[in-house]
Amino acid sequence: MAALTYHAPNSIDDAIKILADASLPPKVLSGGTDLIIQMQRPKAPESLVVDVKKIPGMRDAEWSEDGLTLGPAMSCAEFTKRQDIKSIFPGLVEAAYLIGSTQVQGRASLGGNLCNASPAADTIPALIANRAICVIQGPSGTRVVPVEAFVTGVGKNCLEQGELLAALTLARPEPGTADAYLRFIPRTEMDIAVAGAAVSLTLDSRGVCRNARIAIGAVAPTAILVPAAEDILVGERISDEVLAGVAQAASDAASPISDRRGTVEFRRHVVGVLTKRATLIAAERAGAQL
């Protein structure tokens, strides 16, 4: 395992200073479920670890008038127990619940899942579908970036040296909105997503879709939005025909690779199936009579 220097600052400002002044490659430690494995690899470079869990607010989730402010280091175990969040964002909570085992959820965080930027991360499509915003603090102040712009490639994010993901914010959805997330894995648990799909829909009182946001995961270098599927949904009631179109649009949008977890053909097909099924679940949650 690589040699490392460990810091556990008590404030964001201290964390930013340590990160900005780091002479070694700095690594932010939240849940550590990806980071500690990466650091244990042979030939892993020496690094400076900044544990952000002791910073006040980093593990909290609070509601305001506008919506939810989420501490990025809150563990999935704590997050998934929050009925107040689950009642508003059931799909996002499901995505967090799907990350690894109970043990992994005891440590893993949404912020860590996001910053690690795996193409197969479960919470990223769900955050994108819910229009989550990253609040980034750094030596030159605070900036905000939508989640879909935060992740820039496989394992890459837009944080500059000295910057830290300080919070995630989610606007309170308008009435008639609900989300859902589904992923495909060969077993029932523990695996990394072979494909994933998150859907957030707003239905009017007649069951017509007024707004849709669909993000798919593990089928491209980053999670991607599927505007073509959204266009098919908006203005329509949920029907078999609409769902078939949504599935096709998601499959068409995918540009997957073949690896030990699945083939191009399999991923392309299954992401369509998942998108269709997640759309149906979100619609039911939004009050559609199906």
Binding site: P186, R187, T188, I192, D259, R260, R261
Partner: peptide, 16 residues
């Protein structure tokens, strides 16, 4: 061997 670990060498789980 590309799946030399319990993550991708998938033995049955209690929930399976």
């Amino acid at each position: 061997m590309e799946n030399a670990g319990f993550l991708d060498y998938r033995i049955p789980l209690a929930s399976d």
